[in-house]
């Protein structure tokens, strides 16, 4: 029902004005270009993706990628084409290699190390804590210091 309503309401505006054409001749190719280009780096820019950049080289490379897509090349082949020429620098998603192992595993190693350290620290604490009287004294001190601050004229 709702669709019908939308269509009916759209008819006058459709009649009044012509629908704009997509900029690209082939929107499917353009969509694939876009998904590829957001993960590729514009080489001459400060730090922009191939999709965002207006630099002439970026335009050339987009044109090149577009042609490769039309030729039916796979994403892998297109990326290899670029890496052969510009190196891994062109990839915003670094490939898994010996030199990037630490980069990809690092976050999870950090997490495991952190979790282990926390559990060990809490265990050790539990053992060391002979009694809580010490911390009671400390708490009294806090209370005293704070009330000093609050009550000072």
């Amino acid at each position: 029902m709702r669709w019908l309503l939308v269509i009916i309401l759209l008819i006058p505006s459709l009649a009044a004005a012509e629908e704009a054409r997509p900029l690209a001749d082939n929107p499917q190719v353009e969509a694939r270009l876009k998904t590829l280009a957001v993960e590729l780096r514009c080489l001459v820019c400060q730090n922009q993706t191939l999709a965002d950049s207006n630099a002439p080289l970026a335009e050339d490379l987009r044109r090149e990628v577009r042609e490769m897509i039309t030729k039916g090349m796979s994403d892998r082949e297109i990326i290899d084409f670029l890496v052969q020429r510009y190196g891994d620098f062109v990839l915003y998603r670094p490939p898994w290699k010996a030199t990037t192992t630490l980069l990809w595993l690092g976050p999870f190693l950090l997490l495991i190390a952190g979790a282990t350290a926390l559990v060990l620290a809490l265990r050790r604490r539990q053992k060391k804590l002979v009694d809580v009287t010490l911390s009671e004294a400390e708490h009294n001190r806090v209370a005293q210091l704070l009330s000093e601050g609050a009550n000072r004229p």
Binding site: V44, D60, L61, E64, R85, Y86, G87
Partner: peptide
Amino acid sequence: SGRVGINYGVYG
């Protein structure tokens, strides 16, 4: 067209 440039990995 700059195509040979791309093949040579020219970026500037």
